[in-house]
Design a protein around this nucleic acid. Structure first.
Lengths: 207, 207
DNA sequence: TTGCTTGTTGGACGATCGTATAACAAGTGA
DNA sequence: TCACTTGTTATACGATCGTCCAACAAGCAA
């Protein structure tokens, strides 16, 4: 007779990915305080020791999850940009609208992000990651605004305003999901764009 | 000879206030994960047992701190409203502008708020407190917008947009203090108000 | 001064935390 | 079939967590 294996070996990259995704799920479900080594390992279906084996410490796993989650958002935004076509104004609108559609508008992702924010104060490496990610996000917005013909002295403030509005809508959607829908959030953000940019897109119709 | 007292008795309300303020300082300094009973008690200069004596559990203390912090913000906003005079439009502008001036713009207060947000997922009592506070905040905004003559079918979205923008600016100010100043945040929020309200107030002059 | 109320202390308790490590077993090549 | 490598498990360890409680003492009344 043959016993089935007690566990299955996995490729290192596979296992890392699995642990990172389990960490993200735990952060979304239980918040930062619930993301313990044992909880994450249970979520991933492995033994607690594997976290130390692959990441050294749970802090490193959380930081890796932060980077992975940020990369997911960047990829989704980049995809939205290429799908929007060549028109700069359409690209900008797609950039903002995509923030309120899956996979970015995923409530689990928003909750995960809040968990990261709560770690910024205590962890300097997380703070550094946030600074670069926020700088990249705003630089992308500035480039899009410039392509739309927004004067240079207005680009900075407009980028800050757009990113703040999007972050705030994200936040309330996550904290009080019943307050308003993601469709409403998207409409509000688009209206904000209209107000910030006097130049109208080529495909402008009605609003 | 006379030994000085080993400790000093305090009025119950005084002691509660002291513990709440110590809890807020710890939340701002170390985040939600650093707000342990012993850390808070050390910050307040008392023994750890006092937390249980006055609040029953550390969770109740955190919830009380949330309520106290929210009340502080409400009081500051109310003061800004009365100082703004009778004109509805001036009241609305003061309401938003005050969000980026002390004591609301205090970085410690913002950090404390983030700590609360990180607890919303895991703690239903904190979530309930957030829902009521957010509903109150938005109801105030709706009343101000209505007084400014904004049509009823636009009040809801405008209130959501304003609160989201303010929250987002708060957030980035706390996470990356070097990104922009509170003066810039205030200017951005005021520009947002101008864009949202097409109806001009009676005392409108220039902009 | 003496006695009493009770705010306050400081440590005990079990649970859970992150980390380290010895023992085990899955998969591979000889 | 049989080592051998190493991914994986399970446990041990000290530290810290929240909660609880018996003892102490500050301040007031008599």
């Amino acid at each position: 007779m043959s016993n089935k294996p007690a566990f299955k070996r996995a490729e290192p990259d596979e296992r890392r990915q699995s642990l990172i995704e389990a960490c993200a799920r735990v952060l979304a479900r239980a918040g930062a305080s619930g993301a313990s080594v044992r909880t994450i390992a249970l979520e991933a279906g492995v033994s607690p020791g594997l976290v130390g084996h692959y990441f050294g410490s749970v802090d490193a796993l959380v930081a890796a999850t932060y980077g992975h989650t940020g990369a997911r958002v960047d990829a989704a935004l980049a995809a939205a940009l290429t799908a929007a076509g060549p028109d700069p104004r359409a690209k900008l609108e797609a950039f903002v609208t995509a923030s309120f559609l899956p996979p970015i508008a995923d409530p689990q992702l928003l909750a995960t992000w809040i968990a990261f924010w709560s770690l910024v104060r205590a962890r300097s490496d997380i703070a550094a990651q946030h600074d670069t990610q926020y700088a990249n996000f705003r630089a992308r917005l500035v480039a899009l605004l410039a392509a739309c013909g927004l004067p240079g002295d207005q680009q900075r403030r407009a980028a800050i305003a757009i990113s703040a509005l999007v972050d705030g809508l994200w936040l309330e959607l996550c904290l009080s999901p019943g307050s308003f829908s993601s469709d409403e959030a998207s409409a509000i953000a688009r209206a904000q764009l209209d107000a910030l940019i006097s130049t109208r897109p080529a495909t402008w119709k009605d609003r």
